[in-house]
Simulated scan of single mutants.
Amino acid sequence: MPDPEPRPRASLATTGVAFVLVWCTGYIAGTLMVAHAAPLTALVWRFGLAALAFGVLATLARAEWGDGPARVHSAITGVLMLALQFGGVYLAFAWGAGAGVAALVIGTMPLLVAALAVAGGDERLRASQWAGMALGLAGVALVVADRIDGHTPWPAWLALLAGLVGISVGTLYQKRHASRIDLRAGLALQNAAATLLLLPGAWWLEGLRYAHAAEFYLPMLWTVVVNSLGGFALLFVLIRRGAATGVAALFFLMPPVTAVFAVWILGEHFTALKAAGFALAALGVWLATRQARVPA
């Protein structure tokens, strides 16, 4: 009788590939969107419309919205993974951080998630998985090496560190507390919480400033429909079905894949160094995830 494991493992791998491809388009769309809007305002648009869309989907499907604690857990996850992560990254861009610095800081997320998961007793990692994490980070460093400068101001560093903490702690928090609610209802609550948290800053500090132009609306709609509805739905499924460190390791592939997209869309160059970084990151992800167990 054949081993029943390959099918769920293959399914999870396919979901992981789809997640990486969808998620990476968000960096391109986000860059285009923030060029025509204040950073927090752009996020209020994105998260607010995503909350509305997920809320409509949950209502039409008559999904269960969970009890009080489940809703609170979803809201906290939204504050961490959406408001804190993206708020930190977008503010860092506005305060002078380059894309390479941001990618390198956020690229340490899998290592931080792994350390927190092990320290909290959630998971145990083998030596080969730690080696994969190190190789993945080295691959990210090679990909973004030509985009790192020494002129990033300290407020931007603090914002990026806040974003790193948000996505790292949020990943573990969702795995532990917020994965039992309906996907549509949970994501509606997460996006609504992020919107409410960022709205005062977008209003009072930025005056809800954005350009009434297609250059803003088109990438903004892409981030809502493709990245929020598609990307976060895939991430929700991955976190629910897989180990948190295995899911986090996929983020090593984000800078290399985004670099490939940037060649096609933004006209950037894909160098031999980036190609080597891509290969190294892919090897690291393979080592970090190949021994992860997938629930039946």
Rank of each mutant, 00 (worst) to 15 (best):
A114G: 01
R147W: 09
A127C: 05
G166K: 06
L161V: 15
L161C: 15
R176K: 15
L183R: 15
L160W: 03
D149P: 00
A134S: 04
G136K: 04
M109V: 07
H177N: 01
I181K: 04
A178M: 08
Y173H: 14
A117D: 03
A192G: 08
A162K: 01
A185W: 02
A162C: 04
A178H: 06
I106P: 01
L116F: 10
L111D: 05
L164R: 13
L189I: 15
K175R: 03
G163N: 06
L111K: 04
P155C: 11
L160M: 11
A159K: 03
D146A: 04
Q174E: 14
P110C: 13
G120Y: 00
L142D: 10
V143G: 05
V165G: 09
S179M: 13
R124C: 01
A156C: 06
Y173T: 11
W130V: 09
A141D: 14
P153Q: 09
Q190Y: 06
S168C: 10
S179E: 12
E123I: 00
D122P: 02
A145E: 13
E123G: 01
K175W: 00
Q129N: 10
Q190P: 07
V118R: 11
A119Q: 05
I167F: 00
L137K: 11
V143M: 12
W130E: 06
G136D: 06
G186V: 13
A141L: 15
A138T: 13
L161S: 13
A156F: 01
M133C: 11
A119M: 08
A117N: 00
W157S: 10
K175T: 01
W154A: 12
L160K: 02
A114W: 00
V165T: 14
A188P: 02
A134C: 04
L137N: 07
T152W: 06
L111T: 04
V169Q: 02
V140T: 10
L116V: 09
V143C: 08
R124V: 02
L189F: 13
R184V: 05
T171E: 07
G150S: 15
V165D: 06
K175Y: 01
T152S: 05
W130A: 07
G136H: 08
V143Q: 07
L160S: 02
A131R: 10
K175D: 03
L112K: 12
L125V: 05
P155Y: 07
Y173R: 12
W130N: 02
A145V: 12
R176W: 10
R184P: 00
A185G: 13
A117Y: 03
